[in-house]
Design a protein around this nucleic acid. Structure first.
Lengths: 143, 143
DNA sequence: TCTAATTAAATTGAGCACAATTTAATTGTA
DNA sequence: TACAATTAAATTGTGCTCAATTTAATTAGA
């Protein structure tokens, strides 16, 4: 086998690399569908949380998505500019910025609802593999 | 169960989201180790290919890493500025830019070789889970 | 009640990603 | 051989990510 001390540094022996590459490839594969509703992938997952939660602050949104205010602040301003969300300071604690779904944001849900099914059709994974992947990824995420 | 027609849009029902989030979390966990050798994660995986291949052009490097010249060109210029790689046009086909490892780049390998082991120690996955994840991710990547 | 510590967003700056376009070199074909 | 098509990098512009810092509001402790 002649396993070299440097084999640990080969790209084919990394788990992080296919994770990083597959993530980017999957996100990329969403683009044609997301283009139709004028969202980037990150904007799309923010909207998913908004469709479900209706209203929450930036910190809570960040906890849902593993993103911080450095990423979310400019992104939320763009979503606000599109009329999809509203950004208002909390009256009880001015430090908190409350993000809320608008009617326009709610309406976008109907145009987005077909995307998960269309994406699933593109997947080459079996149901079992998808379930295994899902649980392993959430284990990595510590959940 | 009252499964709603919009359940497909819930973040918890996505496979793409934990993939995207876990990838970022894992890349982030490399930072303390990569800081010691002054590489970013992307620079690190480029160096992994260089340590293995010694010399290849930008297109080949991009195929290894699923990255294009838009990402690689500025990154390779930074690695060149650090003295880790050399960038030279092919004499037989001037369109090709050949990237080669330098002695300094080779020397960095010794400082990097402990990283995979240290990262593996941080992982909370079993050997079986890691193997499953690996093969599913490469299936997504079409390999 | 001051004031120090904490907290939440925002800001700043560096570094990717990637689509789209441009530039330059090479190849294939009439 | 001309020259259109193709190919490889580089460039441009937009949009994340994220660490570190700043700003402003709130909370907790002496």
């Amino acid at each position: 086998m002649n396993k070299c001390e440097y084999d640990a540094l080969k790209i084919e022996n990394q788990l992080c690399f296919p994770l990083y590459a597959a993530s980017r490839e999957v996100v990329k594969s969403y683009k044609p569908f997301l283009d139709k509703i004028d969202l980037t992938y990150t904007q799309y997952i923010v909207m998913m949380v908004m469709w479900e939660k209706k209203s929450l602050n930036v910190k809570e949104l960040g906890e849902c998505l593993y993103l911080d205010s450095g990423t979310l602040t400019p992104l939320l301003k763009k979503l606000e500019a599109k009329g999809l969300v509203a950004r208002v300071r909390s009256e009880t604690d001015e430090r908190n910025l409350i993000v809320s779904i608008t009617d326009i944001g709610e309406a976008l849900k109907d145009k987005a609802v077909s995307i998960p099914k269309e994406m699933a059709r593109c997947s080459n994974l079996s149901v079992e593999e998808a379930q295994q992947l899902y649980s392993i990824l959430y284990k990595i995420l510590g959940k």
